[in-house]
């Protein structure tokens, strides 16, 4: 208790020092991030930091190490420091009401990034900027049905059972292929979003389907599982990308490389670049706009062999 008080005093002291040393014009934004749970999360943090630097915004970054109580502490210290706006990428949906009310009382606008918050009063935050999992599933399915003319037997690798990404992507994909009676998912199993499980589950599925000669496509809920699956396809003596089409979501660097070498056919981007739109919203708010849509949908660029190489060089340049 005493320790945390000292820490609080210390941060507060530091903040006061900063306020005096700063140019009055410069915008200060606090960002309460989840932590570094995955590669995607890391590029999300990096992208927000880079965007802030580009725009000359002072970003106060807090890494909560996957704990909500750390995030709430961070938000309280942002309020104490009287930042101009707060970005929160919540760990979980619940439990945000009190601290958001404190922010509202202090008249600091809050923007939610990525995961949602469950609050009874929607005026507690300006807007939520997040990817739309259903749209990602739809885009993947649309690409596949166009490519195959609506005739396809699919093996599905689901994400972790019950996760919002897996549920949303499944819903979007299934709704789209429902219009094509000859496009069917014949086997579906979870591979828990990991590469190792993706490979293991695909090995067994392919053997159960007589070596996979009648399979037209593999639909994986993320790139990691797809990268595991292409190894299983290769070991079964088939060519991933040609004999079996590979459709996936995320568009991480490794997947784009696989697209360039022809082993993955398509990956729908889960955009980690949520920083730019968030700062746009803050600027609009400061310019006087008060009424924002409650959910700004992000991402969904479709990467195939035509544009993957260009995207890779673009990312490498950053």
């Amino acid at each position: 208790m005493k320790k945390s008080m000292i820490r609080l005093c210390f941060t507060a002291g530091l903040a006061i020092g900063l306020v005096f040393s700063l140019n009055v014009q410069a915008l200060t934004v606090g960002f309460a991030q989840v932590g570094s749970e995955s590669g995607w999360r890391t590029s999300f943090s990096e992208s927000v930091k880079a965007e802030a630097e580009k725009r000359g915004i002072t970003l106060k970054f807090s890494d909560a190490q996957q704990k909500q109580e750390n995030q709430i502490k961070a938000v309280r210290s942002f309020i104490a420091q009287r930042v101009d706006a707060i970005l929160i990428a919540p760990v979980v949906e619940t439990g945000w009401q009190p601290v958001l009310m404190e922010a509202k009382r202090a008249r600091i606008p809050v923007i939610i990034l990525d995961r949602n918050v469950a609050v009874t009063d929607p005026s507690l935050y300006l807007t939520r900027i997040a990817p739309d999992f259903e749209v990602e599933g739809q885009r993947a399915a649309t690409w596949l049905t166009e490519k195959t003319g609506g005739k396809c037997k699919i093996l599905e690798l689901q994400g972790t059972v019950g996760s919002s990404a897996a549920l949303g992507r499944m819903k979007g994909f299934n709704a789209t292929i429902a219009k094509f009676p000859e496009t069917k998912i014949i086997r579906s199993q979870t591979a828990e979003f990991t590469r190792a499980k993706g490979k293991e589950v695909m090995e067994t599925m392919l053997k159960a389907e007589g070596g996979g000669k009648n399979i037209c496509a593999i639909w994986a809920h993320n790139d990691e599982m797809a990268l595991g699956a292409i190894q299983a396809v290769k070991e079964a003596g088939l060519q991933p990308g040609k004999d079996i089409l590979i459709v996936s979501v995320d568009a991480v660097d490794d997947a784009l490389k696989a697209i360039v070498s022809g082993e993955i056919n398509v990956s729908v981007e889960l955009s980690p670049h949520l920083g730019g739109p968030a700062f746009d919203v803050i600027n609009e708010y400061r310019a006087g706009k008060k009424d924002f849509e409650k959910w700004i949908h992000m991402g969904g660029a479709v990467f195939t062999i035509e544009n993957a190489a260009a995207e890779l060089t673009k990312r490498g340049a950053k």
Binding site: K199, E224, L227
Partner: peptide, 14 residues
């Protein structure tokens, strides 16, 4: 073995 199998090291999940 697990790392060699997927030709990658995934510290979160291995």
């Amino acid at each position: 073995i697990a790392a060699a199998d997927i030709r990658g090291s995934d510290a979160n999940n291995a």
